[in-house]
Design a protein around this nucleic acid. Structure first.
Lengths: 225, 225
DNA sequence: TAAGGTGCCTTACAACGTAAGGGAGCGCCA
DNA sequence: TGGCGCTCCCTTACGTTGTAAGGCACCTTA
């Protein structure tokens, strides 16, 4: 019989692209060697010819997405250092919004693709070019945290469905919550997240991201002078 | 024969304490049901009588450490809002330094123990008591990120051993790196981390933590007025 | 003393990553 | 032309993980 028509040969790139697509479609926990192989119409062990092990796969996935970040920040120029970094970080954010599992994955990696270093190098270049000392640039880099990659590392992911702020707590005891957490409930009542505001998880909506970003940028600008 | 003298009955608390101890001693990846049971001189399935599943175990571990954070921040009072929060966050940091796996674990949780909400509630209380609007308090909370818990969510963990900044790159090509990453290498040359500086991972040393913290606190104070 | 709950154990299974080796198809060179 | 060796994928199997299902000993209480 005729072999499957679409029997393109495997390759590292094809595998990584399929891995990203799988994670996008079904979440990072669905990214297992067997399932990925299925998607590629291949047996699991075949993947090991192109990638040493699963760690290498995940590293490659990170590398792939970081490449997206890199090209997203290519066309930033003009303006002062704040405007440039701001634009760059927000561009990176668009990439992360396409791959919401990426922040969590990054948290589990222990090594980092070389391209990230190039990226951070350019940021330092921007800073020292704007008059930052290396010491201040260094601290600025730390203060930014993951913002150059377009997100804020969150402590907690959003609960799966429904607004379950508490674990087993039913909806009825909102009153009890208001008593136990008076300030939080008042705050939330006054500050419901705008639904149109694109969100990466719970506490990384667009407006919060930009608020924190500007807070840092302005604070650094003050220290620079 | 006499039964094991130390045949204390199991309990949720005892299991959780053993789990924290195991993670402290051998890392979070050593925390498997079987190994934890071994430490307790018990069979793995026995744990399931006290905890629904492993998720519940991990949630309990988080809860246990957060309780440590809570009591660590009990005796902060006096000073303005900045001093109080600063002291509180730094106290939380001491707890995290004892459990360096905790930041990473928190990143994997999707639910959060109720006690954390009480903690954040008190922070909001401090802020609004100092004249913050709910809106600004809300944004401040987001900007703080994980600092109330005493750490900065890092993008990357430190590589296992040795200063392997690159993956397979040998030591020889420092020159090549200096060429590819001129700003970073200059910066690192000028800014070697002080060894005495206690570090949670790569980019969360004490001085960086305090720098970022003060940057945020000062920036918020300016917005408050 | 019989009943029933409490607390731990035995057995078993599915899903995972992956070690070890096999074999089909190809190009290359004598 | 024939055989060698490389590339690429597959088959089989193993150890480790979390955990479902059920059993058995002990204590309490009626």
């Amino acid at each position: 019989m005729a072999a499957k028509a679409s029997r393109k040969p495997l390759s590292r790139e094809r595998v990584l692209a399929a891995a990203v697509a799988l994670a996008d479609a079904h979440g990072i926990q669905a990214l297992t060697m067997r399932r990925l192989a299925d998607d590629l119409h291949v047996e699991a062990m075949s993947l090991y010819y192109h990638l040493r092990d699963k760690e290498a796969l995940l590293d490659g996935v990170v590398e792939t997405v970081i490449a997206e970040v890199d090209i997203a920040g290519l066309d930033v120029d003009g303006g002062d250092w704040r405007a440039r970094l701001r634009e760059q970080f927000l561009a990176a954010r668009q990439v992360m919004l396409r791959h919401p599992w990426m922040p969590g994955l990054l948290g589990t990696r222990r090594t980092v693709p070389a391209s990230v270093y190039a990226y951070y190098d350019s940021i330092v270049g921007t800073l020292v070019g704007a008059g930052f000392s290396y010491r201040l640039a260094h601290r600025a880099l730390h203060a930014f945290g993951s913002m150059p990659l377009g997100f804020v590392q969150e402590i907690f992911s959003p609960a799966s469905a429904g607004g379950s702020m508490e674990d087993e707590a039913a909806e009825a005891d909102l009153a009890a919550m208001a008593e136990a957490l008076p300030h939080l409930t008042s705050m939330l009542a006054a500050e419901i997240h705008d639904q149109a505001d694109p969100t990466l998880g719970w506490c990384d909506s667009q407006v919060e991201f930009e608020f924190t970003l500007d807070l840092l940028l302005d604070g650094l600008e003050r220290l620079r002078r």
